[in-house]
Design a protein around this nucleic acid. Sequence first.
DNA 1: GAAAATCTCATCGGTTCCCC
DNA 2: GGGGAACCGATGAGATTTTC
Length: 329
Amino acid sequence: MTIYDIARIAGVSASTVSRVVNNKPGIKEETRKQILALLEQYDYSPNETARGLVNKASRMIGILIEDIRYAHHVDIAYYIEEEMGKHGYCSLILNTGLTDDKKVEAVKVLAQRRVDGVILVGSTFETEAVKRALDAGLSAVPVIMTNGYLNLPNVKGVLVDEREGVENCVELMRVKGHEKLAFVRPSHTKSSLSKEQGFVQGMERRGFKREELWIYECPTTLEDGYAMMERILEDHPDVEGVIFGEDLSAVSAIRALVDRNIKVPEQVAVIGVDNSKYCDICYPKLTSLNNRMVEMSLEAARILFDSLEGRENPDRIMLFSRIVEREST
DNA sequence: GAAAATCTCATCGGTTCCCC
DNA sequence: GGGGAACCGATGAGATTTTC
């Protein structure tokens, strides 16, 4: 059912139907009522593709996520999709994969789909290849990056100070009496490097030298988190606390400690990052750095909508993380 | 003369400007 | 108040031109 069909049935032109659909003035009340009744009767719904041809707007935004299997990525997509949906925007969510090639390909897909705006989830999009792709294909639409930033005129970033947050985790460990600490970063992203920097600064403030620090890298899986904790215990049996760059590995690490009858937190304390749902379903419950994923997602959606409506915002907005203490510290 | 390359135009479903 | 027509951009069908 198109406006032409409605127009034919109503005995008016398509332009008259279009005016009624868009609540434009200049239509006799009687005609408006008749057309509205027909729209209702035939359950008319406008063809957004056709609208997009004229308005040069698709009412669709793109959300790029590196790996949608991660719980906190799903959460971010959920909140953004829901928030943008309230403003009448439909979300196209793409799982880009790890490599630059795939991320660039995803940017091209969004450009082909003529999305009105884009949200990039995570600092892993902070690469030269992605920057070039955005500049080439999506320079005319607003792009919001969560937990990262690219220096382009149409890009804005919502960042969380995870460096300071992890530094505070080191301080919490000290207050709780845990001196010998290890840090496990999830991968070599800008965000995880920032967390590592927080660990280094926190430890240096306590008199440790950079080369003395126990820093590891571990993929974000249950198996790898478990194996990583075993390795740390093997390398440093006297370890008193471990800070993981994300929650999933930290939860596995607690399991590895419990399996060895090592008391958490009395003998080894554990802290994660993300403050995800995993924190409450393990025993003891995991202390975690709340990097404010929900607020960051909502803020990204708000800034994107502002940009689409022509309202200005700063290029970068910084949110501050805070520790949520549970039983593992 | 046949095949390939190139060009032209209608089509889709809306919106909006101009005019009666 | 309301109709007609141009227009949006990609696509494909058909017409025309070029090449071998």
